Simulated assay, not measured.
Amino acid sequence: MAQPTGAALRTLAIEYKGIQEEPVEGFRVRLVNDDNLCEWEVAIFGPPDTLYQGGYFKAHVKFPPDYPYSPPTVRFLTKVWHPNVYENGDLCISILHPPVDDPQSGELPCERWNPTQTVRTILLSVISLLNEPNTFSPANVDASVMYRRWRDSKGKDKEYEKIIRKQVASSRLEAEKDGVIVPMTREDYCVKTKAPAGNALGSGVTAIVQLHG
């Protein structure tokens, strides 16, 4: 596996430090291993006033060796029934697609990845996608059909909602195991959540960045 460039490590170190100092509301971000800047664990809290309220969804974000010129990948570890999440947990979202011209995709080049994007913009896009799935090119066709029925019936068709509620309840058990208090109100949700102190930018990572400097 190719080693990350020094530029990639420096960029990731800056982004990680920035998110620790100024977290994105509704998320908790930390490194999977303190000596590896290229793999992050993200905990996503379900936004209030949505089907996902009270949910605790964990995902891994993996960065390529030439980041930010190529996009990272996002894979949910927690089961998420969603039109834009594959069965294996991979997230399908335009912002993470390579910047190639593919007329068949239905996506504009400006909707795809470009080096000005950051982890912060990715996280905000994920929250937006949870609330408003893209059903035009779904990763999970069955979930997309159920979502459209739920949306078009204005909530009268409960099949989609029941699955989400069940997954939210299951995710809360995982939060209890992790010792995480899931925000339930809008006020609590808007409190910016920092990673535990032990997952700050560790000396091992600092040494890696310096080595590639």
Results as ranks from 00 to 15, higher is better:
1 M>T: 09
2 A>E: 08
6 G>D: 07
8 A>M: 03
18 G>W: 10
18 G>P: 15
20 Q>D: 14
22 E>H: 14
24 V>G: 02
30 R>M: 14
44 I>A: 12
47 P>K: 06
48 P>I: 06
49 D>A: 15
49 D>C: 13
53 Q>A: 14
63 F>I: 02
64 P>T: 14
65 P>M: 01
66 D>H: 02
75 R>P: 05
75 R>N: 08
76 F>Q: 01
76 F>K: 05
77 L>E: 15
77 L>S: 14
80 V>C: 03
81 W>I: 05
82 H>M: 09
84 N>A: 09
86 Y>V: 06
88 N>C: 06
90 D>F: 00
94 S>M: 12
97 H>N: 08
98 P>F: 00
100 V>Q: 11
106 G>S: 04
112 R>M: 12
117 Q>V: 13
119 V>W: 02
125 S>V: 07
125 S>L: 07
130 L>A: 08
130 L>V: 12
133 P>W: 01
137 S>Y: 01
137 S>R: 02
137 S>Q: 04
138 P>L: 12
140 N>V: 08
140 N>F: 04
141 V>R: 00
147 Y>C: 07
149 R>D: 15
155 G>T: 08
159 E>G: 13
160 Y>N: 11
163 I>A: 08
165 R>S: 11
165 R>N: 12
168 V>M: 04
169 A>F: 00
170 S>Q: 10
175 A>L: 14
183 P>A: 03
184 M>S: 05
190 C>M: 15
197 A>W: 05
198 G>I: 13
203 S>W: 01
204 G>V: 07
210 Q>H: 04
210 Q>D: 06
211 L>N: 04
